[in-house]
């Protein structure tokens, strides 16, 4: 088979994708649909996924009721923002305390057993350090959210106001960018808090499993799976470990 044959096969696939694109974009305006279909013929591996695949929902706000409510009532949103921020900080402190206790008792439970190679004092200290780093980050994010000019509610109100007033598209786009950035900050803080709570739950479960293993004389089936889950959660919190076969 020659390059020409390959190009012909590629082109056939491109035409097929182009037809699919044309059908999918039928309602979006004839000009846009046609240009998109034309571009699909030579570039279907690069362009077709953007047209044919369903976008994931990451673009939508994680907590729609909070955002939509705050858009119209900045004062209420500010008050609401105060309580969740404080609640988040209390939650993080509570999670940290639970994690420290669970780590300490887990290390004691495996001392002198083969499982100490999987869950050593060094490992516990590493987990503790990562958790501390996350808590610091949450505190910083919390402080930022209370700073003037970084209130998502106010930014949402600003976008709505500019849209109502018919401001230039460039201005609205800038305000929207600001709002999205503040939402992302808020999301980061909430995500970290949830992750810490889940990690605390897991470590407490691991502690229980390890205690069972110590006094029953053999590890239970779920121990390895919990340890794996702990590491997976830590990766999600931003830890970077070099693993491998």
């Amino acid at each position: 088979m020659t390059l020409t044959d390959l190009a012909v096969l590629y082109g056939i696939a491109g035409v097929a994708c182009s037809i699919a694109v044309l059908r999918k974009e039928h309602g979006s305006g004839s000009g846009t649909a046609i240009w998109s279909a034309i571009a699909t013929v030579p570039l279907w591996p690069l362009w077709a996924p953007f047209v044919l695949a369903t976008p994931r929902t990451r673009e939508r706000p994680r907590h729609p009721p909070r955002e939509s409510a705050s858009a119209g009532h900045p004062a209420e949103a500010s008050d609401r923002a105060q309580s969740p921020r404080s609640a988040t900080t209390r939650s993080a402190d509570g999670a940290r305390a639970r994690i420290e206790v669970a780590l300490d008792e887990s290390v004691k439970a495996v001392a002198g057993t083969p499982m100490s190679q999987v869950f050593s004092r060094q490992v516990a200290q590493r987990i503790s350090a990562e958790v501390a780093a996350v808590a610091v980050r949450m505190e910083e994010l919390g402080s930022l959210a209370s700073s003037p000019g970084l209130d998502p509610a106010a930014s949402a109100a600003r976008v709505a106001e500019l849209s109502r007033a018919g401001a230039p598209e460039r201005t609205i786009a800038t305000a929207r960018l600001q709002h999205e950035s503040l939402l992302r900050l808020e999301k980061l803080r909430a995500t970290d808090g949830e992750a810490l709570d889940e990690l605390a739950d897991l470590l407490e479960a691991l502690r229980a499993q390890l205690l069972v293993a110590r006094y029953a004389g053999s590890p239970s089936d779920g121990t390895g799976a919990i340890v794996s889950e702990v590491w997976a959660r830590l990766e999600g919190l931003g830890a970077a470990f070099e693993g491998g076969a």
């Binding site: 690069l46 362009w47 953007f50 047209v51 976008p55 994931r56 990451r58 673009e59």
Partner: peptide, 9 residues
């Protein structure tokens, strides 16, 4: 995060 990926592409 697949945010506005089509326009970026």
């Amino acid at each position: 995060d697949d945010r506005d990926a089509s326009a970026m592409a």
